[in-house]
């Protein structure tokens, strides 16, 4: 076909039509992506849904598609509601979220405010400020793992004895993880909030100052209200990210001591790779996906309404 069409001036055949029809061409361009998405999103989702209603585990040697032989109805879903370890992990995840995210927000806001005025060395400080965010979370985990050792620099600087433990203490392990998360993700907050703050028209700020408003009054009455959308986006983004926290925790404490720092992600990881409860993991995973989707959809529609 291609040989023929190369010689004749008016091309015929299916591909010639495609070349002229924007919709058809679009279909062929999009097709590979759609196929890819089917394989990496839709297929695993249904596979997960299928497994979540069985007792299947990889230990017994039956292939996953034969899982219907051990059909369990909604037992997994029921069990997760009464599983204290699941609730504990959920609570700890939320705890990290409600401490770390506001802390990152206030620090980020304060830093952004410092950076709206030009000062010598601003660009250098700006780059330094952003480094934590660019380090691989696993590496940050390792850094803080080393920092918080009994004989590590933290104890050394604070003048604490080497048996004053951070990562293996029931209370301080969680604090250590939260500190590490704040250290790593405040820069992202700073970056988003600075962008938002620079978007506040400078002449309006100037007008507010000329009207006699103090810096604090202008900050609360002009800057913050104008940044509302950006603030919301920054908070949602960090909250969602924080919910998925894994690398830091896994490297610093492995969820320990005991389950003291076990977050949802770490909990699921252990269930999957240590306890091989794949069907149960599938059920929990789907539940979280469902709950988060509902929250995200609600939040988005709220934001869209606000913008109108």
């Amino acid at each position: 076909m291609s040989d023929k069409s190369a010689n004749t001036p008016t091309k015929t055949g299916y591909w010639a039509k495609v070349a002229q029809d924007g919709n058809k061409m679009g279909f062929w361009f999009v097709l590979p992506t759609v196929l890819l998405l089917v394989f990496i999103v839709v297929f695993p989702l249904f596979m997960q849904l299928y497994l979540s209603v069985t007792w299947w585990t990889p230990l017994e040697g039956t292939p996953w598609y034969m899982a219907w032989e051990v059909f369990s109805w909604g037992e997994n879903y029921w069990y997760q509601l009464t599983d204290p370890r699941m609730w504990g992990a959920l609570w700890r995840t939320v705890l990290i979220m409600i401490i770390a995210v506001p802390a990152q927000f206030f620090l980020g806001m304060a830093l952004a405010y410092l950076f709206i005025e030009k000062f010598p060395g601003r660009k250098i400080f700006y780059s330094i400020m952003l480094t934590p965010m660019m380090i691989v979370p696993a590496v940050v985990g390792l850094m803080f793992y080393l920092l918080f050792q009994g004989t590590g620099p933290v104890n050394d600087h604070l003048g604490l004895p080497s048996n004053f433990s951070w990562l293996t203490d029931v209370n301080r392990a969680m604090i250590s993880v939260i500190i590490a998360d704040i250290w790593q993700w405040t820069p992202l907050m700073f970056l988003i909030l600075l962008a938002g703050m620079l978007g506040v028209p400078s002449d309006q700020l100037l007008a507010a100052r000329l009207l006699g408003g103090s810096n604090w009054q202008n900050f609360i009455k002009i800057i913050v209200p104008r940044m509302k959308t950006v603030i919301l986006i920054a908070l949602v983004l960090r909250a969602v990210e924080c919910f998925k926290i894994f690398d830091l925790v896994y490297i610093m404490t492995k969820g320990g001591p005991g389950v003291q720092t076990e977050t949802i992600s770490v909990f699921l990881y252990k269930l999957t790779f240590a306890e091989l409860e794949w069907a149960y993991v599938a059920a929990i995973g789907l539940t979280i996906l469902f709950v988060l989707s509902v929250i995200a959809a609600k939040g988005l529609s709220y934001m869209v309404k606000k913008d109108k």
């Binding site: 028209p201 100037l206 007008a207 507010a208 100052r209 000329l210 408003g213 002009i222």
Partner: peptide, 16 residues
């Protein structure tokens, strides 16, 4: 600036 008590009308008005 805050203490100078100056009325300033901007070219683009700078309305809040």
């Amino acid at each position: 600036i805050q203490d100078r008590n100056i009325g300033f009308v901007f070219q683009n008005y700078a309305i809040f």
